[in-house]
Design a protein around this nucleic acid. Sequence first.
RNA 1: GAGGCCGUAGCUCAGCUGGUAGAGCAACAGACUUUUAAUCUGUGGGUCCUGGGUUCGAUCCCCAGCGGCCUCACCA
Length: 513
Amino acid sequence: MFNDNPQFKDRLARLEKWRAAGVDPFGRRTDGIMSTRVVRDLHTPETPHDGGPAARVAGRIVLLRDIGKLIFLTIVDSTGRLQIGVAKQLMAAHWDKVKLLELGDIAWFSGKLGHTKTGEITLWADDFGLSAKAMLPLPDKFHGLADMELRHRQRYLDLAANPESMEVFVARSRIIQMIREFLHRRDFIEVETPMMQSIAGGAAARPFMTHHNALDIDLFMRISPELYLKRLLVGGMERVFEINRNFRNEGIDTRHNPEFTMMELYQAYSDLSGMMELTESLIADLAADRRRAIMPQPPGESPSAVRLPYGSRMLDFTPPFKRISYNELFERHLGVNMLDEAGVRKAAVSHDVADVDKKAAAVLVGELFERLVEPTLHDMDAPVFVFDYPAGLCPLTRRKPDNPAVAERFELYVAGMELANAYTELNDPFVQHETFSAQLAGLKEEESMAKMDHDFITALAHGMPPAGGLGIGIDRLMMLLLNRTSIRDVVLFPQLKPLPAEQSAAAGSPPAA
RNA sequence: GAGGCCGUAGCUCAGCUGGUAGAGCAACAGACUUUUAAUCUGUGGGUCCUGGGUUCGAUCCCCAGCGGCCUCACCA
């Protein structure tokens, strides 16, 4: 049953002892439970060694030291750990039962707060209950779970055994909450738009396909919510945002998960510079909050400095962020203006770009930028806004009034990652119709933005207010703020290849016993 | 998709030049009323990822496969 873990049968025997003692090993509702954090905070220098305030806590037993007529055990809940002291003289009525507890069990304890002679805050228990019997053993109580594959496949064990992993996901929730609060303060409303779309628009990426049986139509998992959020601008929602999943059918690595969380927002009557202000303010706020959470202010550092560790480096999120134009970077590294088509083609040839003659100049600019400029952004230890992109790369973007070859777009790079992407949105239905029709030479069809969406054009034809739009990759933001170099460490259940047993189960044969 | 590294007890890891495998924790039996990864005594526990090959003999060498991590490619 469950698996062939050799310790399962030992725990089965223990389970029968609980039943023989009249206890349902899988307990029920328990009221009056306080978090271990709250209980720890109840303890003051004036708290007596025992007989302090009454409290009730619950959690999983992660350490257990049975010293005969006295048992110390450590429980963990979502806020941390607490030592429980169980003395026979205080727990005489339930002594035989408390002796049945073992590592991994989930239990609640009532008692009075105090501490031991070494000063450890301890709840001296006089009553307890078994909330859930653990039938399988937990990972090593000291080393935790180190196997990255098991940490991802069985995230519950990672969370239960590795406090730093729990901290990441608790912090992730807090950061997302702060983003919502930040946007609500600015009068944005949160919406949900379709994840299943008949046209996978709004970005250039390969979509997943699925099928609706009753309608007998193929649908795509969305690669972006953009075209739906803009429809809401047409409808009169002037500030909307969505925090939700996008799906892209591409490679998996330390920066890419097939489903990833994106925050996308649109603000009517704003533009690129409005998005820049908003982005800088939001990111700097979040970084400052993390900064306060993780370490004391280093001596001698300015109180306004916001520096966070990331891998082996320190990232500086102190506003204002650097701003540099795409062309300035391009010229610096290529020695040619991005709008000088002849010069760009020459540079592409000299840098051995493939099929130069078959590609649009803007595609060449993009390739050269990625190859020669982006690596230099990787070495920068502070966020950088790169703005004013070649128009050909940004079909959904408004052009600069004084130069139609340049699009009002920025990307925010941090440590080489594209963290945010923003635009002055295109609201001209005629231009939009054109860009949906035109296929840029040198791009694969599935990677192109040219996917005609008549319904969206119709929406624009009714009038969309001018707007600024912004997208922030939430998972990458978490990596940077929480100092994780793999996206799998900030996504609770990252996509992994199925195990052989799961493959055969999916094919219809029974799962391994 | 390419390359490098890795897969040994429930967990964390050793295992030399090829001679049928070890430690700590966990488990089991016992002792212990202030422990801190408690300690002490004793015991059990293995598809060495899978399948081939070489060899008298393979956890170890070779080939293929599966899975993981990292780097690169791909990637609005």
